[in-house]
């Protein structure tokens, strides 16, 4: 019994330390006082509920936070952010939304699909509170707005860019986790590349299978996967792998190939040492979506239902920092027009 107790304590201590590490970065970068400081004060109080990671994840959540900050500054809304704990059940997510609502926050923005079911439940309980959920259209309700992105359209454009830039006729795609969301990236990318070069070879690799989400945060895995693609003849690799993307950039650098970033303009955010291999990034403007949503709310214009940020709304796109695709932007703009006009329909799977 005593052996077991001591052992258990030791391992638990380790586990707890690990758990707290998980939430660490968020805690360190806890935002300054969230109350709006702008002149244009508003009596609207906005609640934002993150999934695990929260503000400071250098990715998706940070983009949402940026939109929130911008809205706070411009409209003077009061904001409040809350973040999920590791391994919490659905009921805790529901309770987070309820607690925000009962503290007077309205609207409440849920960041990420994990809130889908919780938003439905709580929205039903609290019909007077307005909800928005990002990246999820399954949550349907009279007081739920679904902020969606046409990732496939943006991916189509960077796929075309990859094909145009590829000399080998062989490109790669590294997905973080094998989930439907990332399939959209893959489908658009492939379609874009094939639009340019029907014979192009596209290597596809997902780092992990759900529910193992480590593929979004493991640069070593990203590096191995991308290096394999370069070895197999690819010369451009697109990553939709969150935190694992850094490894893809390193592999590109090592192999003398190119890489394409995702979500934000990674030419500006990635390690400067790998900057020159990032020819473009697929932009998914979560900040724009959050900002726009709050704008409609302050204008008393809340609309329930899905709202897709696509090329037309400039919710997705591609970046040109670094100037490496300046020679093909004309071509890309042409594709963009064709997608907007409906001439090209980009597949999502």
């Amino acid at each position: 019994m005593r052996r077991v107790t001591t052992l258990a304590a030791a391992i638990l201590a380790g586990a707890l330390v690990l758990t707290s590490c998980g939430g660490d970065d968020a805690a360190e970068t806890t935002p300054k006082d969230d109350t709006g400081t702008s002149a244009a004060a508003s009596d609207i109080k906005v609640g934002l509920a993150y999934d695990i990671g929260g503000r400071g994840d250098q990715s998706f959540n940070d983009a949402a936070a940026a939109g929130l900050d911008k809205a706070a500054e411009e409209f003077g809304v009061e904001t409040k952010e809350a973040e999920a704990s590791n391994g919490e059940p659905e009921s805790a997510k529901e309770e987070r939304l309820r607690a925000l609502a009962s503290a007077g926050f309205n609207p409440i923005i849920a960041v990420g699909f994990a809130y889908s079911a919780s938003v439905v439940t709580v929205a039903k309980e609290l019909p007077d509170t307005q909800f928005a959920i990002i990246d999820d259209s399954a949550a349907v309700g009279d007081n739920i707005a679904n902020l969606l992105f046409a990732e496939e359209q943006g991916s189509f454009l960077v796929g075309a860019a990859a094909a145009l830039k590829s000399e080998a006729g062989n490109i790669g795609f590294v997905g973080g986790v094998d989930v439907p969301l990332i399939h959209k990236f893959e489908a658009g990318y492939k379609a874009g590349a094939e639009a340019v070069n029907p014979d192009i070879e596209v290597q596809i690799k997902y780092l992990t299978q759900p529910p193992d989400f480590s593929g979004f945060g493991d640069p070593a895995k990203g590096k191995t996967a991308a290096a394999g693609m370069f070895d197999n003849g690819a010369d451009v690799v697109y990553q939709a792998a969150g935190g694992s993307g850094g490894g893809v950039f390193e592999a590109a650098k090592d192999a003398g190939g190119f890489a394409i970033g995702v979500d934000s303009d990674q030419y500006n955010t990635a390690d400067p040492a790998v900057q020159d291999v990032i020819i473009t990034s697929m932009l998914k403007k979560v900040d724009v979506a959050v900002y726009d949503f709050l704008k409609t709310v302050t204008e008393d214009n809340f609309t329930a239902g899905p709202l897709t940020y696509d090329l037309e709304k400039d919710g997705v796109g591609y970046s040109t920092s670094g100037g490496q695709i300046d020679d093909i932007t004309d071509k890309l703009e042409e594709y963009k027009e064709q997608i907007i006009s409906g001439e090209i329909t980009v597949p999502t799977e």
């Binding site: 699909f113 990246d135 999820d136 259209s137 399954a138 949550a139 439907p180 759900p210 529910p211």
Partner: peptide, 17 residues
Amino acid sequence: AFMLREVAVEVAGSNNI
């Protein structure tokens, strides 16, 4: 992870499976 891939159904419109 392996078996979920075999049997999973996607929740329409969600990224959850």
